[in-house]
Design a protein around this nucleic acid. Structure first.
Lengths: 240, 240
DNA sequence: CGTCTTGTTGAGGCCTATCAATGAGCGTGG
DNA sequence: CCACGCTCATTGATAGGCCTCAACAAGACG
């Protein structure tokens, strides 16, 4: 596609934060990376690292879901991203992590000691450029999120979130309208800059309006994608 | 300076978006880059490129101030960053810019045709890694901004903004308490996720409380940095 | 089958947006 | 040099969306 040495990250992970995917990396480079990684399992709710910890490792999500977040001194929390299988986390310029990471579900990670990871970046041709591509995607997602946080209404935020989750679960290509929501309402709230109550009320309103159906708390069916898309895009539709 | 091949970006631009600084790049690489750049001046208020335009160039700010922004269909705007001298813009993975760029003051840019810029990334040793460092700084700033947009009050947002502007003007090291504000109130509002009226009222309150003094609209003196810092950090101080 | 956590719903209040009007700054031209 | 007209900043009154607080429901789990 666009690069000769590295498979592209393509549209992957465009709308959700967390540095994504080493896969796509040239086979020999990827296998080289694998040799310096250590497997590690994280129970539900456990912390991988906290903001301010010395940044001694880079991690890749093998399976499970993580949240990245930042805190204010009085406890207010902003989740900056949800990370799924394939995403990288822990890359940093400075000596400390600038955000915390916790497991939303049980998760399996691959851990790469930082010094070795950095050496690899210097030695493996194309790795730096690959990481650059992947980081640009993150930055792009972050900018979308700034627009959401700064300018969208609660309903627009929820609609954007649902569509993002749906897109992310349709990597295969299908147009599945059943979305699995692995995180709790508080996590969603802290990701969208709302309270958990507002998240509930907005979801309930979408249910009442027949836009979505929810067989269980963690499962949502998108019944009217068109309306969700209008909302998410911010058409300021009357309907809501 | 600090790296063998690449001068560091150090603490530069940690808190303001926009990819920063080619300077710091090894001299021969920098001069190589210079040979493929074209100078270009932009009048106040003019557009450099719009969201959705084909991404044909990468730019570096030589002097002046730019704003990067995203729009919703009904006109709501989120400014994702202010760019000053040394910052890069226009880097993108896809074929189109994902944000617009306009001149806040008259500005001078150096334009690099994209194809040549990308070729350079492949050919100049260390350039990809340098851009990676710089992009991580952007991502970090974006995450700080998400925390601000999602969780800080108007007063906390303004305090954070003022301190960032001050820091950015003190690259030399001095602890100058006079901050020059090149952008208008609407720009500040769209950067902080507020309205221009709220920006005004919050600034006025800070003036009344003696925290800042404002000899003119575009000049603000920080009289009580400690209180601003508490506010910006989100201590939930009574005082405000 | 209790207990604890998480989700949901409602009532009320606050912060910020909205609407409207005035004031300040500034370039232009008389 | 000052008047005019524009744009931008400031201030006030009001409204509204989301937050806060509180109670209850629904699962999850031992």
């Amino acid at each position: 596609m666009m690069y000769s040495q590295l498979a592209p990250v393509a549209g992957r992970s465009r709308n959700f934060p967390g540095i994504s995917a080493l896969n796509g990396l040239r086979a020999d480079a990827a296998s080289h990376l694998a040799t310096i990684g250590f497997s590690q399992n994280i129970p539900v709710g456990e912390t991988v690292f906290s903001e301010g910890d010395r940044a001694e490792n880079v991690y890749e999500v093998v399976w499970g879901v993580l949240r990245l977040y930042k805190l204010l001194p009085d406890g207010r929390r902003q989740i900056t991203g949800f990370l799924f299988s394939g995403h990288l986390l822990g890359l940093a310029n400075g000596g400390s992590y600038t955000y915390g990471a916790e497991a939303i579900t049980e998760a399996s990670l691959r851990r790469y000691p930082r010094a070795r990871f950095e050496r690899m970046v210097d030695e493996v041709p194309g790795l730096a450029k690959h990481l650059l591509t992947v980081t640009f995607n993150e930055l792009h997602a972050a900018q979308d999120q700034m627009l959401l946080l700064g300018r969208k209404s609660a309903a627009e935020k929820i609609a954007s979130f649902l569509l993002n989750m749906a897109e992310r679960q349709n990597r295969n290509g299908g147009r599945m309208d059943y979305v699995h929501i692995p995180m709790g309402r508080s996590d969603i709230a802290d990701y969208l800059g709302l309270t958990k109550e507002t998240v509930c009320k907005t979801l309930s309103k979408l249910k009442r309006d027949g836009v979505i159906v929810s067989p269980s708390v963690s499962r949502i069916e998108l019944r009217n994608r068109g309306q969700l898309e209008e909302l998410a895009a911010g058409e300021r539709g009357e309907t809501f």
